[in-house]
């Protein structure tokens, strides 16, 4: 291949990865839309300004933490408590970064800083699934980029629309249960991951621990503790001899 032909081949590979990342993120967008709308409405009805609400979506960019923060503002919590809670809620992202990192070690800071900023639950699951797939593409970070930029634009546009809904109708979307859309999306993300017994054990242990600890540990600390219990349970189950149990889940593969 000549140098020019090689270059145009690479460009199309990059574009393919970028577009594939966007395409695979579309279902997650459907779940994020109602969540972003109610965030916008919820945030301004809890007394956060329009600029502050947009600032949360564009500068912090962390759905569940933004939601919890606006709830805490509504309850009159101190800024320190809000930041601490955000830290605990988002501690899971350190695990996401660690999981994806060895696929990205060849990248410069120019890539790593924005990709780090854009790392959400949805993009993590989409990208981790793509990275697990066999086949060495040197442009997998373009897939990450495609997924992340679509989530980011959607999140900010929908927050803005949500603000305007909130101004007209108040907080009615929350009362209708629109916030449940995020949980339904997460359920759809979880089910295909449960491919064998250790993965299932991990989810069951994390879920039951989260329920047990929910009202015991303050400031959302239960979330990260339950996640670690789930990881430990999966690891232990993985170290035990396997058997053909749970064919029901096996078919999900």
């Amino acid at each position: 291949m000549t140098a020019v032909a090689q270059q145009s081949f690479n460009v199309s590979k990059r574009r393919d990865e970028f577009l594939a990342g966007m395409r695979d993120t579309i279902p997650f967008i459907v779940g994020a839309i109602p969540f972003a709308l109610i965030f916008g409405a919820f945030s301004i009805t809890n007394g956060i300004s329009v600029t502050g609400t947009m600032g949360l979506s564009s500068i912090v960019f962390a759905g569940s933490a933004q939601f919890i923060a606006s709830e805490l503002v509504g309850r009159g919590a101190s800024t320190a408590v809000i930041i601490l809670t955000t830290f605990i809620v988002n501690a899971r992202h350190a695990l996401y970064g660690a999981t994806l990192s060895h696929h990205l070690k060849h990248l410069s800071q120019l890539w790593l800083v924005p990709l780090g900023f854009w790392l959400t639950d949805e993009t993590f699951v989409v990208v981790a699934t793509r990275f697990e797939r066999a086949g060495e593409s040197p442009y997998k970070h373009w897939y990450f980029f495609g997924s992340a930029i679509l989530m980011y634009i959607n999140w900010n546009v929908m927050t803005f629309i949500g603000i305007n809904i909130g101004r007209t109708f108040g907080d009615r979307l929350t009362a209708l249960g629109f916030d449940f859309a995020m949980i339904v999306t997460f359920i759809g993300m979880l089910v295909p991951l449960l491919k064998n017994r250790p993965l299932l054990m991990s989810a069951v242990a994390a879920g039951t621990s989260a329920i047990a600890l929910h009202d015991v540990l303050d400031n959302q600390l239960w979330l990260i503790v339950a996640a670690f219990i789930g990881i430990a349970a999966g690891y232990v189950a993985d170290s035990l001899p396997d058997d053909a149990l749970l064919g029901w889940l096996e078919e999900t593969r």
Partner: peptide, 9 residues
């Protein structure tokens, strides 16, 4: 086990 544990929690 990060994805299933975090999502389930």
């Amino acid at each position: 086990f990060v994805p299933p544990a975090v999502l389930a929690a």
